[in-house]
Write a protein that binds this DNA or RNA. Structure first.
Lengths: 145, 145
DNA sequence: ATTCTTATTGAAAAATATTTTCAATAAGGA
DNA sequence: TCCTTATTGAAAATATTTTTCAATAAGAAT
């Protein structure tokens, strides 16, 4: 089910600003701040209001169509969610982000922590940062900035 | 080595605002926003400027004495760092945070990911959220909010 | 103790980010 | 094509963070 169907299903409308936000996120692949998304929409001559960007991101996050990513500095960024993947790997140089698989066993690490702390764990946020292959090739850069 | 020695070592001064910020964080145990820290300092009749709170948090984070924690809503919170522990578990009810150990082997998960993606991984951000034992007892609440 | 140097502070202003309000618009069913 | 109402965008309100700079105080030197 794509995002338009999802919206319909919820009785929500497929509007111009929503189309633009999704399109910008699709083009990017990188986590973007609301401001960055707005800027790019203007650059693409698709003029939408900043307020709508905020509202759209809230909505799409609610629906699970985009995810919020917390970097060390930029703290309010959003990426399109590929369903089933919940972890990000972000390049410190160019900002590109990929999702990766193979962390299904993370949940097996949870049990000992729940035991140690007495917490019930419901959610987690995992994000790696490093240098992507492109940037390694281009710059010969490997270490942390 | 305590924080005062650490500052001296770096040629930095042990000042009133820095003492107050650390003290507030010690009292709390919970991650606090710069504003919250400032508010509490005033309540404790230890009047310091909000600007100094920001600057102190930046500094202490730099020195690894406090860590920044990203909640789902509150996004700019800080807790005192227990050395050697790097991961947080935050209660969705009361906001209390603990650091936990036993994730040393997280780095062993990195290799396959580096192989899959071609990235060089330098940093990671890992945070669990759930319900702390206190809140479980008080409310009988276990599931995600 | 006192003086000196300079890191640090706090107030104000500037810059930036986010939320609220509300009349005007347009999505999509009838 | 009309109608209902979810949604938009502009402006204002609010909140957050950073910058600037003269005044202060930490701590080394005397």
């Amino acid at each position: 089910m794509d995002w338009q169907e999802k919206l319909n299903q919820e009785g929500l409308r497929v509007t111009h600003p929503r189309r633009v936000v999704i399109s910008v996120l699709e083009q990017s692949g990188t986590p973007l701040s609301p401001q960055a998304i707005h800027r790019r929409s203007l650059e693409a001559k698709e003029e939408i209001g900043l307020v709508s960007v905020y509202r759209t991101l809230d909505l799409l996050t609610e629906l699970g169509l985009v995810r919020r990513v917390h970097g060390q500095n930029e703290c309010q960024c959003y990426v399109l969610a590929s369903p089933g993947h919940y972890h990000h790997l972000v390049c410190q140089h160019c900002g590109s982000a990929v999702e990766f698989s193979g962390m299904e066993d993370l949940s097996s690490l949870l049990a000992p922590i729940e035991l140690e702390t007495g917490f019930t764990i419901n959610e987690h946020l995992l994000q790696f940062s490093g240098v992507c292959p492109e940037c390694q090739r281009r710059t010969g850069y490997h270490d942390q900035e």
